[in-house]
Amino acid sequence: MKDKVIEAYAKLAKDYEKHVDTQSAYNAYYERPAMISLLPQDMNRLSVLDAGCAAGWYTEQFIRMGAQVTAIDLSPQMVEASKRRVGDKATVFACDLTEPLPFDDESFDLIVSSLTLHYIEDWAPVFCEFHRVMKPEGSLIFSVHHPFMDFKSFDRSDYFARELLSEVWNKKEAGPVEVTFYRRPLQEILNRTSERFIIDRIVEPQPSPEFKDEPWYERINKNPHFLIVKARK
Rank of each mutant, 00 (worst) to 15 (best):
K2F: 02
V5H: 04
Y9C: 06
Y9H: 04
A10M: 08
Y16S: 05
K18Y: 15
D21P: 14
S24E: 12
Y26P: 08
Y26C: 11
Y26E: 13
N27Y: 15
Y29R: 12
Y30R: 00
R32T: 05
M43N: 07
S47H: 11
S47F: 12
L49W: 12
G56Y: 01
W57R: 07
W57G: 05
Q61L: 15
I72K: 06
P76L: 12
P76M: 13
A81T: 06
V86D: 05
D88R: 14
K89Q: 15
T91L: 13
T91Y: 11
S114R: 07
L115I: 12
L117M: 09
I120A: 02
V126G: 05
F127A: 11
H131G: 03
R132H: 08
V144R: 06
H146Y: 08
H146A: 05
P147Q: 03
F148M: 13
M149N: 14
F151V: 06
K152S: 13
R156N: 14
R162G: 13
W169F: 15
E173S: 12
G175S: 08
E178A: 12
T180K: 07
R184W: 09
N191T: 09
N191Q: 12
S194A: 13
E195M: 10
E195T: 13
R201K: 15
E204N: 07
W216F: 04
Y217E: 01
R219M: 10
I220K: 04
F226E: 01
F226Q: 02
L227Q: 06
A231E: 02
